[in-house]
């Protein structure tokens, strides 16, 4: 067992534990904290995949912005103040569906015959990534920024109190 594998299993275990915590925690704030844990662990997975740039983006956007936003909304919707069940009545079906999907995806991942290299990572340099992003993918990039702008305005309009409220 090489040290890389040891690190992978550790990071993977943290990821899975964090994710499980998100979906089973009895307290919504605990769920949010588990989410941060899972997201940071996924950043670790990205590093293992030698996608350092994405790991940094992951930590900045998810670990920072998204979780903060979620915590804010929890506060605004006073989820904690209302004593009520967090899970719906179709939990058994959910477990069944999730289990079936897990079995299928593991089966697909293991049994498929992947074309090309499956044992070794080829590192993609930052420079090439940036180059491609602003040359080949320039139009989608600009469209994505437009989407972000629209989402920003939309979120403001949705969340703002109307007069008389």
């Amino acid at each position: 067992m090489s040290y890389e594998e040891v690190i992978f299993y550790f990071v993977a275990a943290v990821t899975v534990l964090g994710a499980l915590g998100v979906v089973v925690a009895r307290n919504v704030v605990h769920s949010a904290l588990f989410l941060i844990l899972a997201l940071l662990a996924v950043a670790g997975v990205f590093i293992l995949l030698s996608a350092e740039f994405l790991a940094i983006v992951q930590i900045l956007i998810y670990g920072g912005a998204v979780t903060i936003l979620i915590l804010f909304v929890m506060m605004l919707t006073r989820v904690r103040d209302m004593p009520q069940a967090l899970d719906g009545p179709q939990r058994p079906f959910a477990a069944l569906a999730a289990g079936a999907f897990l079995a299928l995806s593991v089966l697909a991942a293991v049994s498929s015959d992947w074309p090309g290299e499956t044992e070794k990572i080829t590192v993609v340099p930052f420079r090439e990534l940036g180059d491609a992003l602003f040359r080949i993918w320039a139009v989608p990039f600009e469209v994505a920024s437009l989407v972000l702008l629209v989402a920003l305005i939309g979120a403001i309009i949705l969340a703002r109190s109307e007069e008389g409220e």
Binding site: A12, L48, Q90, A94, A95, S105
Partner: peptide, 27 residues
């Protein structure tokens, strides 16, 4: 080195947990 299947299985587990959460949670 780590074979690709490890990452794929990890992603499958993560996705299944997400499915469970979407279906089971009501908040």
């Amino acid at each position: 080195m780590i074979p690709i299947e490890n990452f794929l299985v990890l992603s499958g587990i993560l996705f299944s947990i997400g499915i469970y959460g979407v279906l089971a949670r009501r908040n």
